[in-house]
Amino acid sequence: MKLPVYLGLLHEAERILARSFRVVADGHGDEPDFHVILGTLAGQCDRHVEALEPVIVRFGSEVEGEEEHRVTADGVEEVRTGALGLLLDLQDLSVLVHHLDVMWTMVGQAAAGSRDRELLDIVVRCAPDADLQSRWLQTRMKQAAPQVLLVAS
């Protein structure tokens, strides 16, 4: 059974995303809305990490050997500078969010297949946040893109 691998990756990916949101929030602190909203989104990830604890205790999380194959393993560790850097950093965040969104979907499928009520409840509670995070990034990036790509220096 490989579900523990996915649970472990999911657990870790949420931590990476939380950290990445905070790195971007702090690194682009001059964008007044970032600090607040990215902090909120990071808090959502913290809660997901917490929510996963009981099933990880139950199933375990075997991620050894999977690490090196992952394109999303490191997250955002430092921010770029300038307006273009901001857009690219947001784009990196959306990759991470999308990765998680898919991962929640897969875990949700497994939960449905196994009729595991506890896991299903966790998925129902947490998965919509990834969609929301993705929509916020889209909303913000779509607004920023023309200014960054056409007129910013």
Partner: peptide
């Protein structure tokens, strides 16, 4: 919109 973040519903 989402009232927490302002994300557009679309």
């Amino acid at each position: 919109h989402d009232l927490l973040t302002g994300a557009a519903t679309g």
